[in-house]
């Protein structure tokens, strides 16, 4: 019988073709993502705000909480963006305001993605009655706009940073669960899962070792999209004064508290509003680039 000639198999070490292995090489995915100008812009802005959130103390010209620089000064001079009605430096408060939202949003996202992944894995793999039940509850939760749900819950829980992060996580859980569930349901029908069941593997093993590694791509994309919305929700809750409380320089909160002075000194609200806007846009651009890179 003619033997198989392994040497004839073309260079196995070269990059695998598009297909199930497209995730194998994270670096190549990132390199595709980075090749787009909009992603570059997004990354620069995002990195700027992350650095700022960690090390704002090094950049601020004034203490963001210190009053007495003269009330509602116009931009220019020592106060590049003017001062607010308590005489605090607007630029310093804008720079200091990044840290709160960039703490709450990642924690909330993490909670939501972790819980959602677990729920999605279990409902997608086992289906059946529990799946139907859980998905019904998920539908009911999704029938309420997240902001209204959050307003309801925070008026119940009281406002604290922890409550906001937890809430974001809880709101995201069903959404992430849906995404993960549908990915799991496709994988579950793949024959490698049948093969695992055939060798008598437990459900937990199949979910964790066989299916989970194959649904990481949609989970990561979902996580980046959720991160954008987490900033959205955290900012909005602050704006509704349901999140952080004064005198925090948080952006959403500042827009809320300084709204009365918008006619006199628009910079007091425009500064934090634009800051939050750039952050959100940068996250969206990066996550969109990542999604495109994974699709290709």
């Amino acid at each position: 019988m003619s033997a198989i000639v392994p040497g004839a198999v073309p260079a196995v070490t070269t990059a695998a073709p598009a297909g199930p292995s497209r995730w194998a090489n994270l670096r190549s995915v990132l390199s595709v993502a980075v090749r787009s100008a909009s992603v570059d812009v997004g990354l620069v802005i995002l990195v700027f705000w992350i650095v700022d959130a960690v090390a704002w103390h090094l950049f601020v010209p004034f203490d963001p909480l210190a009053q007495g620089g003269g009330n509602l000064l116009a931009p220019g001079g020592a106060h590049l963006l003017g001062t607010d009605n308590l005489g605090r430096d607007v630029l310093s408060r804008v720079l200091a305001g990044a840290s709160s939202v960039l703490t709450l949003a990642p924690i909330g996202t993490l909670i939501g993605v972790a819980l959602g992944t677990v729920v999605g894995l279990i409902t997608g793999y086992y289906r059946g009655v529990a799946d139907t039940l859980i998905m019904r509850v998920v539908d009911a939760l999704l029938a309420l706009p997240p902001i209204i749900l959050a307003a309801l819950a925070l008026s119940m829980l009281g406002t604290s940073e922890f409550a906001v992060a937890l809430l974001i996580g809880v709101i995201f859980t069903p959404i992430v669960a849906r995404t993960v569930r549908s990915a799991v349901m496709t994988e579950r029908d793949a024959e490698y899962v049948a093969a695992a069941r055939l060798r008598g593997e437990s459900g937990a093993y199949i979910m964790a070792a066989e299916i989970l590694p194959n649904v990481t791509a949609p989970i990561i994309v979902e996580a980046t999209v959720r991160f954008g919305y987490a900033i959205f929700i955290a900012g909005t809750l602050s704006f509704l004064s349901l999140g952080l409380q004064p005198p925090s320089p948080d952006w959403g909160l500042t827009v809320y508290t300084e709204q009365n002075f918008v006619q006199v000194q628009p910079w007091t609200v425009l500064g934090p509003a634009i800051a939050l806007g750039t952050l959100v846009v940068s996250v969206s651009l990066v996550s969109d680039g990542l999604r495109k890179a994974m699709d290709s």
């Binding site: 194998a24 793949a190 490698y192 049948a194 093969a195 055939l198 194959n214």
Partner: peptide, 15 residues
């Protein structure tokens, strides 16, 4: 009892 499946692309865990 064991099984050999039709589609070798999905029969092996790609990861």
């Amino acid at each position: 009892l064991q099984m050999v499946f039709q589609n070798p692309d999905t029969a092996l865990n790609p990861r």
